[in-house]
């Protein structure tokens, strides 16, 4: 990280030529993006920011930092609890790749703590109800939106598009996975009819939501957002694979599904949720296999990525049961 180049750029962006960087440290987590805790003094006032940029090995499926910045702005305008987006640098000459700066929010996102620590989130049922409300605000963002033009046209049929996308990723990975194909085929046979598209976060789950003692501190990780079926986000949040061992708490391992859906408030076709939960389980299995492939290929040697690959058989075991029950 070229701190001098960063300081110079931030000084221009903030309009304070004397801006000082007082601390800059890499934050853990973020397999796809790099996050840096950035403390500065602007016009004599200490500010606590996060600098977000791409990791060396970027997944082609995720948005660029400028696109993520636009999504954060749209979400904030819609009343979603997100860190305030501050400055965007699209000039790769400054740090070698684009980056943006946002407010640093204090809170806990680590999933195993979030599901076990009842002091977080302002009460378990209140927390999932609040998360339901956050999701409803995200889903209130509807196409067309000039500021989100990079998302492209909404899919004519989000369910079939999701199946096609996962098959494409399986083909690209090259490892035959008949169990996942079995699940995808079951989904294809029972695909729900399309509904009007909304903005889907596409990674709204425990681990990507920061909580504090009062409630939701921030909805994070917008890099997969896109137009789609709102039930996709509901299913992703409720899928068993994102409950982090607290299987009885169907809403993200935190609280009840009923409280979550009550908070969501918008009409939900609950018959669609098992379909999207199976899709979620297959999608996570495909991502997990891809993460292991990054380790195996030498692109990014990592024990965490290696162990993630070993989640696939368990997910496949769940896929068979869910496909049977669909």
């Amino acid at each position: 990280m070229d701190e001098a180049a960063l300081r110079f750029w931030l000084a221009q962006a903030s309009g304070d030529a004397g801006l000082r960087i007082t601390a800059l440290t890499r934050l853990s987590g973020g397999a796809i993006q790099q996050n840096w805790a950035l403390d500065v003094e602007v016009l004599g006032t200490p500010q606590r920011w996060v600098l977000r940029t791409d990791a060396p090995a970027v997944l082609a499926v995720s948005h660029t930092r400028p696109q993520e910045f636009a999504l954060l702005r749209a979400a904030r305008e819609a009343g979603v609890t997100v860190p305030e987006p501050l400055y965007l640098c699209e000039d790769a000459a400054v740090l070698g790749r684009p980056f943006f700066v946002m407010a640093r929010i204090e809170g806990i996102a680590a999933p195993h703590r979030v599901v076990k620590d009842a002091t977080l989130g302002g009460g378990r049922e209140a927390c999932v109800a609040a998360l339901g409300r956050e999701l409803a605000r995200i889903h209130a963002i509807r196409p067309p939106r000039a500021d989100l033009a990079f998302l492209g046209d909404p899919p004519a049929d989000a369910a079939l598009a999701a199946i096609a996308s996962l098959r494409g990723r399986l083909d690209a990975a090259g490892t035959p996975r008949p169990v996942l194909e079995w699940g995808l085929r079951a989904l294809e046979r029972k695909a729900p009819a399309p509904v009007p598209p909304v903005l889907c976060h596409n990674d709204f789950r425990t681990g990507n939501i920061m909580l504090n003692a009062q409630g939701v501190a921030a909805v994070l990780d917008w890099e997969f957002a896109g137009w789609g079926d709102p039930h996709a986000d509901l299913g992703w949040f409720c899928a068993k694979c994102w409950r982090f061992g607290q299987v009885a708490q169907e809403a993200g391992g935190i609280g009840s599904r009923a409280a979550f859906l009550a908070g969501y408030g918008l009409p939900v076709d609950s018959a669609r949720l098992p379909w999207w939960e199976l899709l979620a389980t297959i999608r996570w299995a495909v991502i997990a296999a891809d993460q292991a492939a990054r380790h195996l290929s030498g692109q990014e040697r990592s024990l965490e990525l290696a162990l993630t690959g070993h989640m696939v058989p368990e997910l496949e075991w769940d896929v068979l049961a869910m496909a049977e029950a669909l």
């Binding site: 008949p178 169990v179 079995w182 070993h310 989640m311 696939v312 058989p313 368990e314 496949e316 075991w317 769940d318 896929v319 068979l320 049977e324």
Partner: peptide, 22 residues
Amino acid sequence: EVAGFLRDHARARAAVSAPKAL
């Protein structure tokens, strides 16, 4: 028959990767 094969295929791999899941 294929459903049975897939169950065996998933179970044998999960027994190594995540035995608690079974």
